[in-house]
Amino acid sequence: MPESLRQIASGETAIVTAVTATGEVGRRLRDMGLSPGTEVKILGRAPLKDPVSIRLRNYTLTLRNNEADFIMVKKVEGIE
């Protein structure tokens, strides 16, 4: 069942399956290291639940829910 990053709760970990954004947004997301197979952990969300901050490749990235919608993920169960 494909899910987008928006649906993942804080503290959960997921693996990126696809980045569906095209053009500039897609390019920037890939530049920042979001490529299929990358493990992503949701660290938390800003005061108004948007943007979201995630941990990947040993660094922290923030993006809005609108951008998170482009990132398809598969939840990883039972890690930690």
Binding site: M32, T60, E67
Partner: peptide
Amino acid sequence: TPFIMELPP
């Protein structure tokens, strides 16, 4: 426009 920003250490 999109907001995609690193939170540096």
